[in-house]
């Protein structure tokens, strides 16, 4: 085991981290917007955002190939005009991770923004605060426990992504071989020792994420408890 190639570990962490940053920014802004605005067709948009959560990753991968594949409408465009190929690249790993982890971030953020009285924000508006000021000083700090939970969940999900990644990015050593792919191909080639090594690492990571998450949500549930009781 001394000659183990650690590339899957770095690649997984790197792609999961980038994917999580993207998912966090988009998820938080979108969830805040949808939590405070009612319009026709909102439920359909929310359903589409959450769809990757219930679909098999292969279906998500198929959809992504349809979009980003060499003959997909976006893939074709990028290839023709920018000479840029998405499939079988490092970017494909990130795109797959973003799509599968987005629903977890969105769901946590939406719940977090619905978890406090919207009049708290309205009170700030009446005091003359701009939308951005209210977002940064009121909405974000009040939703933060839920947002952080979503962040950890989506990072763990991005780290463990397999199906969609395999379909869009394939298995190219040192380019797209994340830990889950490394496990699969280690087993395929009968290298059980290598597979076990990666399995232990990914189980340890997932386990600590959930352990921390439970502790964190228990701690934060008590945070403004008195306020709720007195209501």
């Amino acid at each position: 085991m001394s000659d183990v190639n650690l590339s899957p570990l770095w690649l997984s962490f790197q792609t999961a981290a980038i994917a999580t940053v993207i998912v966090f920014i988009v998820g938080v802004l979108l969830a805040r917007f949808l939590a405070r605005n009612e319009f026709y067709g909102k439920s359909i948009i929310e359903a589409i955002l959450l769809l990757p959560l219930v679909l098999p990753p292969t279906v998500v991968g198929f959809g992504l190939l349809y979009v980003f594949g060499k003959n997909g409408f976006l893939g074709r465009f990028l290839l023709d005009y920018f000479d840029f190929q998405v499939v079988f690249s490092w970017y494909a790993v990130i795109i797959a991770a973003v799509v599968v982890s987005f629903p977890l971030m969105y769901q946590s953020a939406a719940a977090a923004f619905k978890n406090y009285d919207p009049n708290i924000e309205n009170a700030a508006y009446t005091m003359g605060a701009s939308k951005w000021k209210v977002f940064w000083t009121i909405s974000f700090p009040l939703a933060w426990p839920g947002l952080l939970a979503g962040l950890v969940l989506s990072f763990a999900r991005a780290l463990g992504e397999f199906g969609a990644t395999l379909m869009l990015a394939g298995y190219i050593p040192n380019v797209t071989d994340t830990i889950p792919l490394a496990i699969y191909f280690a087993v395929e080639s009968g290298n059980m020792e290598m597979a076990t090594f990666w399995v232990v690492i990914i189980v340890a990571l997932g386990f600590s994420a959930i352990l921390w998450l439970n502790w964190w949500s228990k701690r934060n549930m008590m945070r403004y408890a008195e306020r709720r009781k007195s209501k």
């Binding site: 708290i120 309205n122 009170a123 508006y125 003359g128 700090p141």
Partner: peptide
């Protein structure tokens, strides 16, 4: 916009900033 109306509003449950 609300911000420019210069109106003080006391909400039923006060809506104090809990944090």
């Amino acid at each position: 916009p609300i911000q420019q109306r210069k109106i003080g509003y006391l909400f039923q449950d006060y809506a104090l900033f809990p944090h």
